[in-house]
């Protein structure tokens, strides 16, 4: 490199040679902003994602399933925590991030704006939603930003555990009574398309993609990842004996992939825009938890303050 190499050039050079960027390193403002947006959105998704699954904890049909579901929802909250911490290394506070979630400024994964109507929905979420999450997240384990990449390694391990548990739940239903199998099929009918939409807009309409690819925050396009998801899910659905609700789904020998039908982009943008079946309820639930907890957080701070003063007095 010559003397005239600029900071942005050095930065891009490090990224090109697969070096990790760490919190104290120089980074372009836009890189920082993009990461804050993406990591906090990811963290919010984990936290809001507790709600639809938490909806079935008190009604889980066996104690084993209750324990598995409690552990899963606890894991998701843990993911939220690692991710909030990763975002904090970029100079935003948790309070600010929560503010953005509650005001609607920050987004979270739209999938959690759908309701969990029956027990089979818990299996459908584990199988489809955790699968989609893994496919989205595996490339993030190699993200150029160190703290995010490291958080993703930990998270991906747990997500694959969730995915297997969800699949096993559905398998149990599919091997059960007609009524149970119908419950599983109904859940897949409702969760399939929202899961396919989890990969975001098609490549032609994806606003942030090119820059994120160059920064190695993103390594695959939305449509590539979506295809991977579909290819993986089809044989798994067949094995369960369930039908995916897409008449256009068929193997394309020439492409070596499954073709699938057109996504209802109108529904996608409705839900992203706040008009999904549970958007209002999810955010209201988060705001209520935060507001109901305000006095608790204040008490903890006041107590810690008193303890510090007492310690100082004792030392004097």
């Amino acid at each position: 490199m010559t003397d005239s190499t600029t900071l942005p050039e050095i930065f891009q050079g490090r990224i090109d040679s697969e070096e990790k960027i760490e919190p104290r390193d120089w980074m372009p403002d836009a890189y920082r902003k993009t990461l804050i947006r993406q990591i906090s959105q990811h963290a919010h998704s984990e936290i809001v994602g507790q709600l639809p699954e938490g909806n079935w904890i008190t009604r889980a049909p066996s104690l084993r399933r209750k324990a598995i579901l409690l552990a899963k929802v606890q894991d998701e909250a843990g993911h939220g925590l690692y991710l909030y911490s990763a975002a904090e290394t970029l100079g935003i506070s948790r309070e600010q991030m929560l503010e953005q979630l509650h005001s609607g400024k920050a987004k979270y994964s739209s999938i959690f704006n759908y309701p969990t109507l029956t027990w089979a929905d818990i299996g459908a979420i584990g199988w489809l939603v955790d699968s989609a999450a893994i496919i989205n997240q595996i490339p993030l384990c190699r993200c150029s930003y160190g703290p995010y990449a490291r958080a993703m390694v930990r998270i991906c391990k747990e997500e694959s555990f969730h995915q297997r548990q969800g699949y096993e739940l559905l398998m149990t239903l599919c091997q059960g009574s007609e009524e149970q199998k119908a419950m599983a099929q109904d859940a897949i009918n409702r969760w399939w398309w929202p899961s396919v939409m989890m990969f975001g807009p098609g490549d032609a309409n994806s606003t942030h993609s090119a820059q994120s690819m160059q920064w190695k925050i993103k390594r695959n396009s939305n449509d590539e990842l979506r295809q991977k998801f579909v290819d993986q899910a089809v044989p798994q659905a067949e094995y369960l004996g369930l039908t995916l609700p897409d008449p256009d789904l068929k193997w394309n020998e020439a492409r070596g992939h499954y073709d699938f039908g057109e996504i209802d982009w109108d529904e996608f943008y409705q839900v992203v825009g706040g008009n999904g079946p549970c958007n209002h309820e999810r955010i209201s639930a988060r705001i209520k938890a935060h507001e109901d907890g305000a006095w608790v957080r204040e008490a903890a701070l006041a107590y810690a303050d008193k303890q510090r003063q007492r310690a100082r007095k004792a030392a004097a």
Binding site: G54, V73, L81, Y84, A289, D292
Partner: peptide, 14 residues
């Protein structure tokens, strides 16, 4: 378990 997702902050929820 009814507290799940409604705790006063994430650490306490967990």
């Amino acid at each position: 378990a009814e507290w799940c997702g409604r705790g006063p902050f994430v650490e306490e929820d967990i």
